[in-house]
């Protein structure tokens, strides 16, 4: 009774690279994410992450035209997350700045109050 499962396992192992479907949906998703992140006006510190994402996406597109579907999918998946991380870092950076401005305001107000008393 072991045989069928062995065959299946073997088939899985051998199937590997040959039958990967074209990852068009993933490429579309990655491109959409990239468009969204580019629009964010990313600051210099976070731009390296975005650059990495752009490079991987370009490589994914090349791999796609060469029919290397598996490689294209992996690159596109990674590019999507690289872009999303750049976006999340940018949001964090922006929230940090807003916090600093607010803290400055409060300090200013305290100073003014202190001067009045």
């Amino acid at each position: 009774m072991i045989k069928p499962s062995l065959c299946a396992a073997l088939a899985l192992i051998l199937a590997g690279c040959a039958s990967d479907p074209a990852p068009s949906e993933q490429l579309r998703l990655t491109e959409q994410t990239l468009t969204q992140v580019r629009a964010l006006n990313i600051s210099a510190e976070q731009s390296s992450g975005l650059k990495l994402a752009e490079e991987k996406f370009a490589a994914a597109q090349t791999a796609m035209t060469q029919g290397k579907h598996r490689e294209a999918r992996m690159l596109a998946e990674q590019a999507e997350l690289d872009a999303r991380l750049a976006e999340a870092e940018q949001m964090h950076h922006a929230s940090q700045e807003q916090l600093h401005v607010l803290q400055g305001n409060i300090q200013q107000l305290r100073k003014q109050l202190g001067a009045l008393q």
């Binding site: 990674q78 997350l81 991380l85 999340a88 949001m91 964090h92």
Partner: peptide, 9 residues
């Protein structure tokens, strides 16, 4: 990457 994104969020 998912972990880093979650951390930043």
């Amino acid at each position: 990457r998912y972990g880093e994104i979650a951390q930043q969020q």
